[in-house]
Amino acid sequence: MSQSGSRTARSRATVRNVAIAVLSVAMLVPLYIVVVNAFKPQQEILLSPLGLDLGTATTQFLQDAWTNPNFPVVSGYAVTLFLVVACNVVAIGVSVPTAYVIARTPTVLFRVLLMFFVAGMFIPAQIILVPAIFVLKALHLMGTLPGLVLFMSSTMIPFTLFIFTGFIRMLPRSLDEAAAIDGASQQRVLWRIVFPLMKPIVATAFILNALSAWNDFVSPQLILGPGSSFRTITTGVYAAVSSYTTNYEIVFPTLLLAVVPILLIFVLMQRHVMSGLSAGAVKG
């Protein structure tokens, strides 16, 4: 009885593992297609899209993609990284003091203020971009990196502020009160005592904001303009690929250059990315 029970348990585990393996392979097939076809000429891609003949494999098309004037790879990465860092600095920098004040001032006014900020989480960024363009125009920030950073940061503030407020509320009040009695100013208490304790939630906000900044296409495309000298990875890929979607000698190498670094970062940081996401959702 117990033996047959363990046997069914074992065969059930086998079925489960096979199912997991099959599904994992299925998820990876598109990525595999990009990788192998990035090294093949058009004719070979069309004839055998899944194979890779090492005899005829070439890095020629990757080199062409690397030097494609539509998608300046190095500067595209530089601009995108700059956006990730700058937007996070702005969004986190302004959210920390605001969240601190809201969390530590239990009055109706500040509760309403929190709701006012949180309402922004229900506004899709690419939808509000159309009217935001007119604000940026009025501020003479249209077509500039500062304008882009400000807009992207503004869309990150609601969520960042929300999870920060929830986190600070759970920190013991006695901490900052003791420091305040010792004569430390409010700013000092915030940045020297509270902020260091916020490390895990700041990391969560940073990762989620970084993902959305890294992958944003609409904001840089519309705010910088398609003719801008600044290209991000996404606007560069669009410029390089959108008119040539059946020229696979361009499509696959360009996509490979665009996805490899972010996938490497993901592989190295996957535990943080995935736990950050669930932490953010639980707090949200």
Binding site: S154, T155, L161
Partner: peptide
């Protein structure tokens, strides 16, 4: 935070 959020959202 309020300035950026109000101004651009």
């Amino acid at each position: 935070a309020a300035l950026i959020y109000i101004g651009l959202m």
